[in-house]
């Protein structure tokens, strides 16, 4: 039936059939979403608990007596058959009950809640910066196709893709913290000490993250705009006397931005991964730094719960983008056979 989805307007399906088709489409997408979440939890569990290596032994060291290791294994919930432990863990997660950190002796959810106050604003600020920068550069390059401006923008974008975000972070610290002294070289004062200082602490990390994302996105926007500009309806708009600018805003941009939505969504996953590194460069107390500190402390409970939370966040975002994309462009549903 999915093959007929694109034909709905022409074949004149009844309202009920259309309703069923939409419902089936949403159900299929939701089932995929749940399956992916399940797979993410299994992958995380297998990677951390079934692979060779004993976290309790790693925490206590190779010389620790077996009885101490066994006691710690029990405390960390690592004894018992793997399937039973998996079901126990996933059951608790489903009820919103997270584990208790071995290092901090507080529930993981509390740690996550604190750290999200840094990571979420950082990710949103980076995304907004990246989207604004990429839109400007991509449109400029498309408008100056095959001219000097296009070549310069594409060269800059190639360079942006090649620079590791953590090195760019160091260069930004060198320029704006060491030389110009405009920003601090790291740390986060917290939102309670005023909005301005907290936002200022996120500016350099956000620029470092956004530059790489913008470099990738600008190329997609340029390419999407160029493809749309070759469409018949754009030529018609120009032929009926619409100015180049009006055509760009009214016809080209609206259509060109459809594929960009998906790229933005996919990039969010990269952005979250990028925050792990960049937060460590700027010593920001976010989720990324929490994961890394947990690894250094061999705090498996924190690593397992936070990793699955980040994976779930990425999967939820991809799911929402998927739905948005289908809502914007009905042709896609026809291709989704």
């Amino acid at each position: 039936m999915w093959g007929d989805w694109g034909e709905i307007p022409r074949s004149g399906l009844s309202y009920a059939a259309l309703h069923n088709a939409v419902f089936a489409f949403l159900a299929k997408r939701f089932a995929t979403f749940l399956a992916t979440l399940f797979a993410a939890s299994v992958l995380t569990f297998v990677a951390l608990e079934v692979l060779p290596g004993d976290p309790a032994r790693v925490i206590l060291g190779v010389d620790a007596p077996d009885s101490a290791v066994a006691a710690l294994r029990q405390r960390l919930g690592l004894d018992g058959p793997p399937l039973e432990r998996y079901l126990d863990w996933i059951g608790h997660l489903a009820r919103g009950e997270f584990g208790v950190s071995y290092t901090y002796s507080v529930p993981v959810i509390e740690l996550v809640r604190d750290r999200l106050q840094v990571t979420v604003p950082l990710a949103l600020l980076s995304m907004a910066l990246a989207a604004a920068l990429a839109l400007g550069l991509g449109l400029y390059a498309a408008a100056h196709h095959n001219r000097r401006g296009d070549v310069v923008v594409m060269g800059l974008s190639q360079l942006g893709i090649s620079i590791p975000s953590f090195w760019l972070s160091l260069l930004l610290i060198l320029a704006f913290a060491v030389s110009l002294n405009w920003f601090s070289s790291g740390g986060f004062p917290g939102w309670r000490n005023g909005f301005g200082p907290a936002l200022a602490a996120l500016v350099l990390p956000a620029v470092a993250l956004a530059t790489v994302q913008a470099a990738i996105l600008a190329r997609f926007i340029r390419s999407a705009v160029l493809d749309t500009m070759r469409e018949d309806y754009v030529r018609t708009a120009r032929a009926k006397g619409l100015s180049a600018n009006a055509t760009l805003w009214r016809h080209v941009l609206r259509n060109a931005l459809i594929p960009v939505v998906t790229i933005l969504g996919l990039q969010f996953a990269n952005l979250l991964a990028g925050t792990i590194v960049v937060e460590n460069v700027f010593a920001l107390p976010g989720i990324g730094r929490l994961v890394l500190q947990a690894i250094n402390n061999r705090d498996v409970v924190v690593v397992r719960d936070v990793v699955v939370l980040i994976a779930a966040a990425v999967i939820v975002i991809n799911f929402v983008v998927d739905l948005l994309y289908a809502a914007i462009d009905p042709r896609l549903r026809a291709r989704d056979v």
């Binding site: 060779p52 290596g53 498996v300």
Partner: peptide
Amino acid sequence: IMLVATLG
């Protein structure tokens, strides 16, 4: 990160 947490 998970691999490293488990295997070193």
